[in-house]
C-alpha cells in the first residue's frame, strides 16, 4: 500500500463499520435481528479478538510463547481479519510504542502533543484512539523492529495479502449467515453483524486500550509511562486492558497478574500449553513483580521518569534477538 491507499483504507475502516452499526440499529429497531446474527457476531468477535490479543500481540509482538506453525498461521490470519493492519506493520508500531511509551516517538500516546485544558486532553485521547492511524507519514521501520517476523514467510504472505484477510472477515460471517438461515437476507445480516458491527466494537476496544489505557485507571507499577489497568475493559479486550501490568512486564504471557484479573487470552495460552501446543510460556512470579515494583517506585514513574529505551530488535546481539533471554 502506498500513502494514498493507506489513507483510503483507514478512512474506509473508520467509516464503513460506523455505517454498519447504524444499519444494524435500524434493523434492531424493526426487530429484524435473529439469534443467528448474534451468534455470528460472537463467533467473529472471539476470532478477531484472539487474533489480535493472543496472535498479533502476545505471540508475535512480544514472543510470550511459542506454538506450532499451523496455530501461528491461524492466530495471525485471525488477527489480520480484525483489520488493524498487516502483522509486520502492527508489530513494528507496537514494539516502538513500548520502546518510548508516552514519550516523543510513541506512535500512539495520548500525550503526544500536550496541550493544556480539556480540549488538549480530548485531542490527545483522540490521537491515541484513532487519530494516529491517519498520519500518512508514520512508519515504524519494520526492518529494524521486527526482523524476526519478516524472516517468517507465512507472516510476509499474510502481511502482503492483508486486505484479502480483512475482506474474508466480512465474507465469512456472511457465509455463516447463509448456512444458519438458508436465506440471502440471513447472509447479508450475518456479514453486517459478524463483519462490520464486529469490526466496529472489537477495534474500538483495542483503540480504547491505547487511549483510556494510558489515561484513566489504576497504576500498580510505577512504570516510566502512563499505562493503566482498566478493569471494566478487561473482559471484552481478552485481558489486554491490564495495560499497566503489561507495560511493566511486556513479555509476560498473562497480562492479568492476580487471580481476579480476568485475562481470556492468558487462559487460551495456558490451555494450549496443557495440550502441548504452546511452549516457552513466559510467566512473571510474584517475587519478581515485587522486586520490579520497588525499583520503579524509586524512579518515580510516569512519562517524565528516566528510562533507557531498549534497542530495536535488529540492533540487539544475535542471542537476544532469537532467544528468550530478554524476559522484559
Amino acid at each position: 500500500m502506498d500513502g494514498r491507499e493507506h489513507y483510503t483504507f483507514i478512512l474506509l475502516s473508520a467509516l464503513l463499520p460506523l455505517f454498519g452499526v447504524a444499519a444494524a440499529v435500524v434493523l434492531l429497531w424493526n426487530q429484524l435481528v435473529g439469534p443467528a446474527d448474534l451468534v455470528i457476531f460472537a463467533i467473529m468477535y472471539v476470532i478477531a479478538g484472539l487474533g489480535v490479543s493472543t496472535g498479533y500481540h502476545r505471540l508475535l509482538a512480544h514472543r510470550s510463547f511459542r506454538t506450532t506453525r499451523p496455530l501461528r498461521i491461524f492466530f495471525t490470519a485471525a488477527g489480520a481479519m480484525a483489520g488493524q493492519g498487516p502483522p509486520v506493520i502492527w508489530v513494528a508500531h507496537h514494539r516502538r510504542h513500548h520502546r518510548v511509551a508516552d514519550k516523543p516517538g510513541d506512535p500512539h500516546s495520548p500525550y503526544h502533543d500536550e496541550e493544556p485544558g480539556l480540549k488538549g486532553a480530548l485531542k490527545g485521547l483522540w490521537h491515541a484512539h484513532m487519530g494516529w492511524l491517519f498520519d500518512r507519514g508514520l512508519s515504524s521501520d519494520p526492518m529494524r523492529y521486527c526482523p524476526d517476523i519478516l524472516r517468517d514467510k507465512d507472516m510476509r504472505f499474510i502481511s502482503k495479502h492483508f486486505v484479502w484477510f480483512v475482506t474474508a472477515g466480512v465474507v465469512l460471517p456472511g457465509v455463516l449467515g447463509f448456512a444458519f438461515t438458508g436465506t440471502l437476507f440471513g447472509a447479508f445480516t450475518g456479514a453486517l453483524w459478524g463483519g462490520l458491527v464486529r469490526f466496529f466494537f472489537a477495534n474500538h476496544i483495542t483503540y480504547a486500550v491505547n487511549s483510556i489505557g494510558h489515561y484513566f485507571g489504576r497504576r500498580r507499577f510505577a512504570t516510566p509511562d502512563e499505562s493503566r489497568n482498566v478493569g471494566w475493559l478487561a473482559l471484552f479486550s481478552f485481558g489486554e486492558a491490564w495495560h499497566n501490568n503489561h507495560h511493566a512486564f511486556p513479555r509476560s504471557a498473562s497480562h492479568g497478574m492476580r487471580w481476579y484479573e480476568i485475562d481470556i487470552s492468558a487462559m487460551v495460552i495456558g490451555g494450549l500449553e496443557k495440550l502441548g501446543l504452546a511452549t516457552n510460556v513466559i510467566r512473571i512470579d510474584r517475587e519478581r513483580q515485587e522486586q520490579k515494583a520497588v525499583a520503579w517506585e524509586k524512579l518515580g514513574g510516569g512519562r517524565h521518569a528516566r528510562a533507557t529505551p531498549d534497542k530495536p530488535l535488529a540492533h540487539r546481539p544475535r542471542a537476544a534477538a532469537v532467544g528468550i533471554v530478554d524476559v522484559e
Binding site: 506493520i89 512508519s139 526492518m143 510476509r156 502481511s159
Partner: peptide
C-alpha cells in the same frame, strides 16, 4: 516502495 515492500524484497 512501502516499508513492507522493501522488507519483502530484502527477505
Amino acid at each position: 516502495l512501502s516499508s513492507l515492500q522493501v522488507s519483502e524484497i530484502v527477505f
